[in-house]
């Protein structure tokens, strides 16, 4: 059975490293894997989506509505934007950071309130956490992606040491310690 992870966020937030890490890990675990991303114009501060699919044999590179087992979101509004892609019993892992989109900045719209409450009221399991604080605690606000991966790791039956090895394989030596700390903080946070 193919498993589907969607990584969503705002262009420039670092979702490419997260998908690289997942792809590497899942291939090591012996799965067929497809990772699909969009480059170009939408990367300029727009809403960005990466699809990660794995299983015995994966055909489509994309995830469609009602198919995602987990949505990992770098930003709260983006989690809400893709909620229709979640499976009926799917789970959302979300960084509680709010980044105003341009319509909000120019006053044409307002940032919606209580998005997490609204998603939960649909019966969706939402695992929300302040990843920016945890990333800063690890040593850099740029480690939000690895904090989220730490959190995600709780929901897959893959041993922690395999995740740690994948981080070691994908991240340069000089940033390793900080990212391993970020992973541990994301995984441990209650």
């Amino acid at each position: 059975m193919t498993k589907n992870i969607m990584i969503v966020g705002v262009g420039g937030q670092g979702s490419l490293l997260a998908s690289k890490l997942l792809g590497h890990l899942l291939l090591q675990e012996g799965y067929d894997v497809k990772v699909s991303e969009v480059h170009g114009m939408s990367q300029r501060g727009g809403s960005v989506v990466t699809y990660v699919r794995f299983g015995e044999k994966v055909y489509s590179p994309i995830i469609d509505k009602g198919e995602a087992d987990v949505i990992v979101s770098f930003e709260k509004l983006e989690a809400a934007r893709y909620v229709e892609y979640l499976k009926k019993d799917g789970r959302i892992v979300v960084n509680t950071q709010e980044i105003d989109p341009m319509p909000v900045i120019i006053g044409a719209a307002s940032y919606p309130e209580d998005l997490i409450g609204k998603m939960e009221s649909l019966g969706i399991t939402v695992d929300a956490m302040d990843c920016v604080s945890l990333a800063n605690e690890a040593g850099s606000s740029k480690a939000v992606n690895i904090v989220l991966m730490g959190r995600l790791s709780r929901y897959f039956d893959i041993p922690e040491e395999k995740w740690i090895q994948a981080i070691k394989d994908c991240i340069p030596e000089k940033f390793l310690e900080m990212n391993l700390k970020a992973f541990a903080l994301g995984r441990a946070e209650n």
């Binding site: 420039g12 501060g45 509505k65 009602g66 809400a80 934007r81 229709e84 319509p103 649909l122």
Partner: peptide, 20 residues
């Protein structure tokens, strides 16, 4: 058949690409 999904009853602000 296609899978079912849940929807938020709210229009969310777009996030178009912007100049950096």
């Amino acid at each position: 058949a296609v899978p079912e999904y849940k929807s938020l009853d709210e229009t969310l602000p777009n996030r178009p690409p912007v100049m950096c």
